[in-house]
């Protein structure tokens, strides 16, 4: 479904991506993990078409992605952003936020689609005419997910969808994403620095550092700690929490 080969991106003189390749099969779920600044979000933005200048080859569902993509391309691919406080227009009601993509693509029967989208993410009709500032973080992220899914995309990109949320809300959103993924057979790419989140949602992962993929592995291998690259081991150790003995040894 997604074939990326040798993606490169530079911001000024800084090379953000230095040749990243991966592929995700239809219905698969791919995780990108790594520390801040490792380039994982940049990969996602290149796939989403939000970064104008990049090098390499990228194809989605067999179609080569060009610098300027036609409108129908957008129906196949949507994204959920990290910060639910910044990704919803502050002056638009939930209704308008969901109606906008439908109007752009002139999809029939927007009424029913909006109601269903809200229902799918566990928000009742009561939320339809609220403004984002009247919603909690988790509710906002649900609206963002509904907005992404209202166009019925095949590919869903998730940019740390839970990292800005409270721990108890994180679990709910993750469960929701898992359910929607199964129900709709979505192909997903998840970016996170949290291995637990990635393990819950993905079957294959790539570990990124300084703009390159250092290791690609499956989640089961990760669970059994069959990883080869030292950086992946460090990440694993970090995900188990702070271990004073380990910290001392590393020093």
């Amino acid at each position: 479904m997604i074939e990326a080969e040798d993606l490169t991106v530079s911001f000024g003189r800084v090379a953000a991506l230095r040749g990243v390749s991966f592929h995700v099969e239809r219905g698969g779920s791919f995780g990108l993990v790594g520390e801040s600044g490792s380039g994982k979000t940049t990969v996602l933005r290149v796939v989403a078409g939000l970064i104008p200048d990049w090098g390499g080859r990228l194809s989605l569902a067999g179609e080569t992605v060009l610098a300027r993509s036609p409108r129908r391309f957008h129906r196949r691919l949507q994204m959920v952003f990290q910060d639910p406080y910044g990704s919803l227009h502050p002056r638009h009601t939930v209704d308008r936020i969901l109606a906008e993509p439908l109007a752009i693509h002139r999809l029939p029967d927007p009424e029913r689609r909006i109601a269903r989208a809200l229902d799918d993410v566990g928000l009742g009709p009561a939320f339809r005419f609220r403004y984002p500032h009247q919603l909690s973080g988790g509710q906002r992220q649900r609206v963002a997910i509904a907005r992404a899914l209202v166009l019925e995309p095949e590919i869903l990109l998730l940019d740390e969808p839970t990292s800005a949320l409270d721990v108890s809300v994180q679990a709910e959103i993750l469960k929701l994403l898992v359910r929607l993924k199964v129900e709709r057979g979505l192909t997903t790419v998840l970016v996170s620095h949290n291995l637990a989140v990635v393990a819950m949602l993905c079957d294959r992962i790539a570990v990124m550092r300084e703009g390159v993929v250092v290791e690609e592995t499956s989640v089961s291998a990760l669970r059994e700690e069959r990883v080869s690259h030292p950086y992946t081991r460090q990440l694993l150790a970090a995900s188990r929490g702070y271990d004073p003995a380990l910290a001392r040894r590393d020093l």
């Binding site: 989403a48 078409g49 939000l50 409108r71 391309f73 957008h74 129906r75 691919l77 949507q78 994204m79 952003f81 990290q82 910060d83 910044g86 990704s87 919803l88 227009h89 906008e100 993509p101 752009i104 693509h105 963002a144 907005r147 166009l151």
Partner: peptide
């Protein structure tokens, strides 16, 4: 901001 990125991702034209 992200909501503008989201609108671009939906295929909204610059004028819109």
């Amino acid at each position: 901001s992200d909501f503008i990125a989201a609108a671009r991702l939906q295929g909204a034209s610059a004028a819109r």
